[in-house]
């Protein structure tokens, strides 16, 4: 990080006029980046909730519960994020009528749904894998203690899963955070889109390069700490 800052400082010193223009665009770009953070946090939150339910459904004894979950996971794990964002943006309504009133359904929220769908499919797989990794003997002993199947899941199995799934979950979070840049292609005003706006307004080759590099560095600053933390957790949880 220090090296990046040093390079940036050196470059700014060599190109003062360019640096001034770039600094002028910082608020506009920052607004865009806030959108990336909002989209990624919302998408992973919704995705985790739905994924948890789907993961448990995948292991249900009843076929009619299991089959739809398995099909959903297979399709959306293999679907490109970009295509899902296109699908949600262009095919979902812009507002929803709920209880007589209309609620706006803005583009960024559609991008959230577009990313939450694949996120939930991946999380379902993570959850399924984690539940399966817990020895079946625990289910049996919990049963003999009078726990129902759902209560066993809630109080005994899932708490253990949480620890095991954390690194995989964080990897997914980083991947969804990076996926939020795809929303620029459907016109959501996030960072990459803001950079194109800035580049169109300034119309200078060197500025164009500088602004896209700024986008690259911003995402790195967001995702790298997540990835470092993941590695530390992986090492700590490694058996």
């Amino acid at each position: 990080m220090a090296a990046v800052a040093a390079v940036a400082a050196l470059w700014a010193a060599l190109q003062p006029d360019l640096a001034v223009i770039l600094i002028g665009w910082v608020p506009y770009l920052a607004q865009g980046f806030a959108m990336n953070i909002l989209i990624s946090v919302a998408a992973i939150a919704i995705g985790s909730l739905i994924g948890l339910i789907l993961g448990v459904m995948e292991l249900a004894p009843a076929r009619w519960i299991r089959a739809p979950a398995i099909t959903y996971v297979h399709i959306f794990r293999n679907a490109p994020h970009l295509v899902l964002i296109f699908a949600t943006t262009y095919a979902m309504p812009f507002e929803i009528t709920l209880l007589g009133g209309t609620v706006a359904f803005p583009d960024w929220l559609k991008a959230v749904v577009g990313l939450a769908i694949p996120a939930s499919a991946h999380i379902a797989e993570i959850v399924r894998g984690a539940i399966q990794s817990i020895p079946t003997a625990q289910w049996e002993s919990a049963g003999s203690l009078g726990f129902s199947r759902l209560r066993t899941l809630r109080w005994i199995i899932l708490p253990q899963c949480l620890r095991r799934t954390l690194p995989a979950w964080m990897n997914l979070y980083a991947s969804i955070a990076m996926g939020s840049a795809l929303a620029s292609l459907v016109g959501v005003g996030e960072l990459l889109h803001a950079a194109t706006d800035a580049s169109t307004a300034v119309r200078r080759t060197d500025f164009t390069i500088a602004v896209y590099l700024t986008v690259l560095v911003s995402f790195f600053a967001y995702c790298y700490p997540i990835s470092r933390l993941t590695q530390r957790l992986e090492r700590r949880f490694a058996v």
């Binding site: 398995i70 099909t71 399709i75 699908a87 979902m92 309504p93």
Partner: peptide, 25 residues
Amino acid sequence: MLTARHIAAAALGLFVGTLSANAQA
């Protein structure tokens, strides 16, 4: 195992779901 029927069924589901969303006047 995922069969072609599964894929078709889910694709159709998505299709119908989004189609109805398109109708607004």
